[in-house]
Every structure is written in C-alpha cells, then in structure tokens.
Design a protein around this nucleic acid. Structure first.
Lengths: 229, 229
DNA sequence: CATGTAGGATTGTCGGACAAGTAGACCAAG
DNA sequence: CTTGGTCTACTTGTCCGACAATCCTACATG
C-alpha cells in the first residue's frame, strides 16, 4: 500500500485524535497541520477535508476545523446504528447456521487478555463484531460498519478513566451469541446482541454526561414531533 | 446553503453522471474538469476526490478517474445492503406501530403518477424508503442509507431501456408494508420488504448482464473459503 | 449599555511550476 | 512476425506564493 503524503498525514492525525494528544474540541488550522508535517497548505487542507468527511473533525464554512467531541446523543446514535446493522446481519448468519472463525478467535483473544488481568480489550472486541459483519461478504455493508467502527473507537478513547464492562461478561455474551447463531435462533441472537450493545451504549452515554435514562432505543427525535401548537 | 465552488462542481458532475452525459467508465481528467468549469486545477482535483469518496468516480494511484460502472455484483451488493438496513428499521418501526406520514405521501405520489401513465417513479419510490429510514431519527442510520441511495439511483440510470416493475405492484406492496408496520407485525413486514427489494435486485442485476440466479441473498464470497488444502 | 467598526487571523480559490508515475508507441532483437 | 525493452507524452502529486472573502474579537463611539 503506497501511501501518498496526504494519506500519511491523515493516518497520523487520526492516531493523534485517538490517543487524545489532540483533545476533543481543540482547533486545528490548516497552517498548523502544514507546519507540523512540513507540507504545503494545500496538502494540509486536503488532509483536513478528508478527516472532516470521515467525521474525525468537524468544520463549518470558513471556520477552523475542530476535533470532534461526541456527546451522549452521539453515542446513543452510534450504538443504535450499530444495533440496527448488526441485528439484521446476525439474523442472516443464523439463517446460514455458520459462524466465522475470526469471530471465535477474537473472542478467545479477549478471554486470554482477561486472564492476564487486562481490561483494555477494545481491539479484539471490535474485531469480534467486525468479523461477524465481514463474514457476510458484502463490501458495502462492511464499509458502512467500518465508518461506524472508527466512531466507536473514538467513544472509547474519550472516556478512558470511566468504569467499563467486565471482559468476563463480554466474553460470555459473545460466546452465547455465537451459539445462538450456529443453532439457527435468529430472533434470540438478535435480541441478545441488542441487550449486549444497549448496555454498553448506556454506560458510555452516561459517562459522557447524559442521563442513564430508561434504555431509550430511539432518540427522542424518533417520534415525529407530536406537540404541534 | 451557501455552496462553495467545489460544491457546485461536485453537484453538477453528479448530475452529469446520473443523466448519462458522462457515460459509465469514461475517463475524466482534472484538467478536463478545470477547463469545463473554468476553475483552477486544484479545485477540480478536490471535486474529483470528493466524487471518488462518494463512489461516483473510481480512481487508482496516478491514474485518471473514471465514471463508476456498476456490474451485477455491485447491484446485488447494493440491494442486499439496503435489505439489511431497511429490514431492521422496519422491525423497529413495527415495534412502535407508527408509520411516517411522508412515506404514505410518497406512495400516494407513485399511485398518482401511475394513473397518469408514467413509469418513471424513481424519485417518489426512493422518498418512500428514505422516509421510513429517516423516521427513526438516527442521523447515522440515515446517512448510511443516503450513501446507498445515490448508488441506487445510479443503478436505475444505467439501464434506462430495460423493463421495469409495474408501479401498480410497487404501490400495492408499499401499502401492504405500511399496514404490517401499523399492526405491529415485525417479521412479516421485514419479510415482505425482503421480497420486494429482492425482486428489484434480480431484475436490475439481470439487466446488467448477470445471470438471474436462484435469488442469492449472499454473494458467493459470503461463505468463508471452505476448501483449505 | 448597545452598537458599530477596524484589525487580525483563517479559509477559499487561483495561477504556475516541477517531479514522479503510467500507459502506450516505437524500435530492436530473436 | 512475435517478443521484449526503451522512450515519450500525458496525467497526477505536491509545492510555492498570492489575493479576496469571511469570521472573530476587541475596541471605539453614541
């Protein structure tokens, strides 16, 4: 993969955002990026525009780009979208009764890390879910999920200090989901996934300042404004 | 919405692609775009890059961009992804028992056009489906669907002459889907949608040179290569 | 205190320039 | 005549410098 200069800058800036060296909501001017990497402003501009397209940065007309800052509403939206996509994929996989080897491997990896006492299992956890999606073999479904995946990582990175779910529970639920798929129980697997992700969603959203709330599956805007006058 | 020069160029090029004034697979150089709209090459470059990101054009390193040409495989992938997303959304809507007014309106519009003898109902048809998605109120779900929507329009545009489904049938199925949602029958509505879109998928894929095939819900690559050694 | 305005900072777009890479034409050898 | 390698034209990737349009802030003014 021969990466152009712009690609390299984009990749590095993504890293900086994920590692929080660039704090959420901090400004990032074109000149700044150009200076940091010693590239032309046009190049920096292109990099910033790509990051805006990928929702790593946000920017309005003529305004300086800022590192995206996810609020409780964003987290809920991201996780709900995950739920919609993954639920249906699980149903389809259950119809086939097959489960990708990669998913099992990723879950085993989580278990191994847990036994070592590690709590940071973001990588293997995402691999588990991504493996399920990818096993359908639909490029567009995978890429839709991929764009969500980065935002999920962002969520995680933006609340390092907070409490997390125990890997123990996660591993068990993942295993149960795989079982339900292989035994063809579409509805049950989708329901369990929903529960699995909803719990994570509320934990994350709560940690970002939102009310725990009664497990709202739909954001309030879901109901067509029912208070006209 | 104050559109920048780049935005304007992007929009116009999209139109040209949809209207087939730019044929599928035809090359489009930066200099060409710059000359056509009398803008700097850097501007043309940015426009092309955005169209590549939106999958309107395709390009490899150092190669001239070309208008995307969708094959049967692409069409199936696009429609399968639609099915995955919309199925789950329908289930959720059925859980609420509510149907957006916009969807009813769009379907009525199709019916009206049909009574006028018109066969081109692409616009209202897409509105129907988009209204359902949007009624969930999830920005990310909507935007995932939106990026698919353009490709769907592209499919349609790339096979003008071919036969189409009768609007009469489409209206009836849409209506039935709405009924199933309001009566809370999640599985039934999802199943009908699946049938609805699968039929369109095979019609389109077939018209683009693919075998009709036994309604393959998954591309062959779905099954993890099971012939190791 | 409200309001308007001048200034600086930043982005949007332009024009030209050059190196690097690709693809196809052309020529040479078997 | 086919095969193979080289060369050239075209296109893209990146840079530099420049200017107008726009936005934000701070300050001056009534």
């Amino acid at each position: 993969m021969v990466t152009s200069v712009i690609d390299a800058v984009v990749e590095d800036l993504k890293e900086l955002v994920l590692s929080r060296e660039l704090a959420p909501d901090s400004p990032l001017t074109e000149a700044e990026v150009a200076a940091r990497y010693d590239v032309a402003r046009a190049t920096a501009k292109a990099a910033i525009e790509r990051l805006v397209a990928e929702k790593v940065l946000v920017r309005r007309n003529h305004k300086t780009a800022r590192v995206v800052k996810l609020g409780p509403g964003d987290v809920r939206d991201i996780y709900n979208t995950r739920i919609y996509l993954e639920s249906e994929v699980l149903r389809r996989l259950a119809g086939l009764g097959e489960v990708p080897e990669d998913a099992r491997a990723a879950n085993a990896e989580i278990a191994a890390l847990w036994q070592q006492g590690t709590w940071n299992i973001v990588g293997p956890d995402m691999r588990f879910h991504t493996a399920l999606i990818d096993s359908l073999g639909s490029d567009r479904t995978s890429s839709a999920y991929a764009s969500l995946a980065f935002e999920v990582k962002l969520c995680m990175s933006q609340l390092q200090g907070s409490q997390r779910l125990s890997p123990e529970i996660i591993v068990a639920e993942h295993a149960k989901i795989l079982d339900l798929i292989t035994s063809g129980e579409a509805d049950a697997s989708a329901a369990l996934l929903d529960e699995h992700l909803s719990r994570a969603r509320e934990l994350l959203a709560g940690a970002l300042g939102g009310e725990p709330g009664p497990a709202a599956y739909l954001p309030s805007s879901a109901l067509p404004a029912s208070t006209p006058a």
